[in-house]
Amino acid sequence: MFDIEKIRFNEQGLVPAIVQDVDTKEVLMLAYMNYESINLTIETGFATFYSRSRQAIWKKGETSGNLQYVKSVSYDCDQDSILLQVEQVGVACHTGNYSCFSEKLSLNEENDVKNEVPSYLPNLYETILDRKKNPIEGSYTTYLFNQGIDKILKKIGEETSEVIIGAKNEGTEELIYEISDLVYHTMVLMVEKGIKLEEINNSLINRKEKVKS
């Protein structure tokens, strides 16, 4: 049984909290919790932490929308660290990576160090889908859905033009930025029209098979 009274807080009244994706088991982030934030997490079902820099309670994703739905809370055998298993909406890291632990060094393959690209697209899609189902005031994605299909299509047209312009310019930095914008707005259109990411994936697989034949 989880008993908050058994937790061994440090001198500042804090305890480190590891956040893990409940499905993939990937470690998402490390934060700190105090007595109040643990209680709020249990009561609301949303991951809530204590910010040492702001010295205040903060609910993960309250402004970004990258909420963490807590599925379980546990502490280790010494009662001095917390483990949260969560369903992550969007990304966990402020850098845009799904996990804060995205910088990896592979030690099991000799002389083979790889920078793995996180599978961000499914997480981005889920975040956009969540905005459709649960609008957030001040959210740009919510604004697009409220404006409707014509506004979304207009933005896709604008971003397509920006991609063309970016491709004509020197370097790739601008082009990468504009392609990212186009991908995002295309996903907004997909959600608006009820198209799942799996359907696009299956279509691409079919194209790959046709190329082989």
Rank of each mutant, 00 (worst) to 15 (best):
V73W: 06
T44L: 13
W58N: 07
E103A: 13
T141W: 05
S99T: 02
I82N: 06
V117R: 01
A56G: 09
I128M: 02
E103M: 14
K132G: 06
G90F: 00
Y125P: 03
L84E: 06
F101V: 09
L129M: 09
E110Y: 11
L129T: 07
E126F: 10
R52S: 03
N146S: 12
A92I: 03
G138F: 03
L129I: 00
N115Q: 15
N39F: 08
I38K: 00
N34W: 02
Q79G: 14
I57F: 03
P118D: 04
I57D: 01
K104G: 09
D80G: 02
F101H: 00
D112W: 12
M33T: 05
S37F: 06
Y143H: 13
G96M: 04
Q85C: 10
Y143P: 09
D76H: 05
E103F: 01
D150C: 14
S64Y: 06
I152M: 07
Y125C: 00
Q85D: 13
S102P: 03
Y75S: 12
V70Y: 06
N34E: 10
Y143V: 12
L83P: 01
L124N: 05
L153D: 09
Q55M: 13
Y98K: 14
L105Q: 04
S99P: 02
C100Y: 05
L107M: 12
Y69V: 15
N39G: 14
G138L: 06
Q55D: 15
P118W: 05
E137W: 05
K104E: 13
V117H: 03
T142K: 01
F145G: 04
M33I: 11
E62W: 01
S102V: 13
Y50I: 09
